[in-house]
């Protein structure tokens, strides 16, 4: 997997703290402001960035990220432009791992090998392809492996003991636990159930486990960060961009997002973690 991603998780483990993974959509609300937002994320405490690339038909996303995608597309957003944005971000930041997140078809149209090469060149460390499950991801995985880009697989509340090994076999980077049955940002997480699921996954893999889809506030972020290696927050940040757009104050979006990121980063980083997280499986 990507060295940048491995190094970041190793450093976090050494400090015994969890990571905040901050999701934003590329080119939302426009390319310039989007770059400012990206640059603000690490400063505000985001350890890893999840960079969405837009798709017209985001079947797994709730209203917040759906609208972010539409804003991006309206501003000329595309997979190519997402990679260009990332390349610009990399001019100033070579340390923060960036995971691309989106849907199959833009990748299909670019072609797996071309996508993997372009993503590597832009400075991507991983990919989450929401609608490419393990049954369908072998050719993509092979192309990404050639470029040392992690293909992040997802586990969910519908993942039973029989399916989990299939997901973990061939997983790289980290395991993304989708903590609710539903779309992004719609249901609130049940921290107790999520913590139990994280522990179940950690017993079966040495990979870091991130939790996302239902984390919106500091309290739930802290509860998850006590057991998980990373907490993913997306809709709560994207909503800050939407508010700035609605208020006709696009220029405020970077600082508003940064403020929210800081709140959640403080909660995640301050979580009281039990020791020896990493030695779950000797």
């Amino acid at each position: 997997m990507s060295e940048r991603l491995a190094a970041r998780f190793a450093a976090l483990r050494a400090q015994n703290r969890a990571a905040l993974i901050a999701y934003v959509m590329a080119d939302d609300p426009n390319p310039d402001v989007s770059l400012d937002i990206l640059r603000a994320l690490p400063q505000a405490g985001a350890d890893i960035i999840e960079l969405g690339f837009p798709f017209t038909d985001p079947m797994a996303d709730g209203p917040s990220i759906q609208r972010a995608g539409l804003r991006s597309l309206k501003a000329g957003g595309s997979l190519k432009r997402t990679l260009a944005l990332l390349a610009k971000f990399r001019e100033e930041d070579q340390a923060t791992p960036v995971i691309l997140m989106g849907y199959a078809n833009p990748i299909e149209q670019m072609g797996y090998a071309d996508f993997a090469a372009a993503a590597k060149f832009a400075g991507a460390d991983g990919l989450i392809a929401v609608d490419i499950p393990p049954e369908e991801d072998s050719p993509l995985r092979a192309a990404l492996q050639n470029e040392n880009i992690a293909l992040i697989r997802m586990a969910t509340p519908t993942t039973d003991a029989a399916r989990l090994p299939k997901i973990l076999e061939g997983a790289s980077g980290f395991v993304y636990y989708v903590s609710v049955t539903g779309v992004t940002g719609a249901k609130a997480i049940g921290p107790a159930a999520a913590r139990e699921a994280v522990q179940r996954i950690k017993r079966a893999t040495d990979l870091p486990v991130a939790v996302g889809f239902g984390v919106r506030d500091a309290e739930s972020a802290r509860a998850i960060a006590e057991v998980a290696d990373a907490v993913v927050v997306g809709s709560a940040f994207v909503d800050e961009i939407a508010k700035a757009v609605d208020a006709d104050r696009i220029q405020d979006a970077p600082q508003n997002v940064a403020h929210k990121v800081k709140l959640l980063a403080d909660a995640v980083h301050g979580a009281a973690r039990t020791a020896q997280q990493e030695s779950a499986r000797a």
Partner: peptide
């Protein structure tokens, strides 16, 4: 695998795969 030649398949979110 639900394939008709190169077409078809199961391109859905992981939550739906067991379903």
């Amino acid at each position: 695998n639900g394939r008709f030649g190169e077409f078809g398949g199961r391109y859905v979110a992981e939550t739906l795969m067991p379903l």
